[in-house]
Design a binder for these strands. Structure first.
Lengths: 251, 251
DNA sequence: TCGAGTTTGTGCGATATACGAACAAAAGTC
DNA sequence: GACTTTTGTTCGTATATCGCACAAACTCGA
């Protein structure tokens, strides 16, 4: 790609949108400039552009994103057949298991939820489509990383912030690589309270008809309700069934 | 706002992202150019920029959005406290009603789902956070339009594509305006198969402590299961309870 | 009320980008 | 296989945008 095939004004604008998050729902020009590292004048023009187009509100002091911005993310969800295909299977799976079931894809060092059928809330955080979790300590993340060539998995780990969310969290890269090998062999990943205390989950890869991983499926359950050791026995057959059914549908 | 406070390259890029939808998950440069009305050279630069940043994939012929694009929409969802606050109430509501419950906000002529607790699928389309429906024929949309000054509601209707989705759909602007008045008086909106055959729904406004509408709440049910006339008796009390509980929490 | 410290708005020269047209390369079509 | 149509890419130039520097408007504590 040539230098002039890149629209830096566009790239800068996208950076500005991503500057908003749960801790910063409203941003002044100076704040947004600090977060993005972009010049104040540049940030100001981007924010005024967003506001002019209805993607942001401006009260003269702070900018806040409007629901119109959801169109951008939704463009992916509705344009990608995967979430739509998976959803009914997930509903059925969640119903039979009596627990939440989700599907995700890998994006960099994180997994992104693309579909979810939730039962009673078990996690402290609110997971919905578009939510992200670090791959290294989530069951679906393990499945994704296990599906990659080892050097790619290592590369992703090296970019990850491997922190211990609980006393059970595996953070040593070599331990994790060994775990990926185990996941690859047994065909599923089991997480016992590594992400959050009291939460267990089990995941399997979802492959298309050419054997390529296209998503990960999981079931999460409160540790108080189902011991990690029982997860395999109780939920793996259901996951395997769903996996097999979807394999036929996907291409 | 001055002319130079607008970054047209950014605006054009956002238009290009929105060119992708369920019917067009993959776009060539020429297609995207046709849809957006932008010059092929301009679209090409925007798409290459998206691809360079990892927001799109390019196989040399077609561009497709990647899950990274979900970050943009998620920036709104996680930055706005409303969805997070509402979700647990919705879960509880859906659980007690045994039907799907949702919350939405108005964006132009459409309502946008910002949270949802779903039970068995009743609609043919897959509703998730970020999904959109035309306001004029959805229960939550009626609630929103009823909350606006009449001239604003009329203005939105005039911009809406008032088509009859089913034989029951109200499409006459005057009928709709009269219906809004009724909704305002009775405090709820009831839809009987106007959006989709076999689907009924009932919605109430969600107001903050200053009496301003901030979202709409609804419960949807299959017409085969609950007759429209029974919706009020069965679900309105639950909705009113949730509405009252949330009114205290919101500000 | 004052003034130091911030934050926001603006003018300008240097630079990057968009436009439209022209060309090249595919993809259909007969 | 020659012709037409569509698509992708390149190029020069007019125009828009960037980032800096400065000015104006707040903010807050003394």
């Amino acid at each position: 790609m040539r230098e002039t095939d890149f629209v830096s004004g566009f790239a800068r604008g996208l950076t500005v949108i991503e500057a908003f998050d749960e801790t910063r729902p409203k941003l002044s020009i100076a704040e947004a400039s600090k977060i993005t590292g972009l010049d104040r004048a540049t940030v100001r023009r981007s924010l005024l552009t967003l506001s002019e187009l209805g993607y942001a509100d401006y009260d003269g002091k702070f900018f806040a994103l409007t629901p119109k911005i959801l169109r951008l993310g939704h463009a992916y969800l509705s344009a990608t057949p995967l979430p739509t295909i998976i959803q009914p299977y997930l509903d059925h799976l969640s119903d039979r298991a009596g627990q939440s079931a989700s599907a995700s894809v890998l994006d960099g060092t994180e997994i992104v939820y693309i579909a979810r059928a939730s039962q009673k809330r078990v996690m402290s955080i609110n997971l919905t489509t578009g939510s992200r979790l670090p791959a290294y300590c989530a069951s679906m993340g393990r499945v994704w990383l296990a599906a990659l060539p080892e050097h790619e998995a290592r590369e992703i780990l090296s970019r990850s912030n491997l922190k211990a969310n609980t006393p059970y969290t595996k953070t040593d890269p070599e331990d994790l690589i060994a775990e990926f090998r185990r996941v690859r062999e047994q065909g599923y990943a089991l997480i016992d309270q590594e992400l959050e205390l009291g939460l267990c989950s089990i995941a399997v890869p979802l492959e298309n008809d050419r054997g390529r991983i296209v998503a990960a499926l999981n079931i999460g359950a409160p540790a108080a309700h189902v011991a990690a050791a029982d997860m395999v026995e109780r939920y793996l057959p259901l996951l395997k069934e769903t996996q097999a059914a979807l394999r036929v549908v996907l291409r």
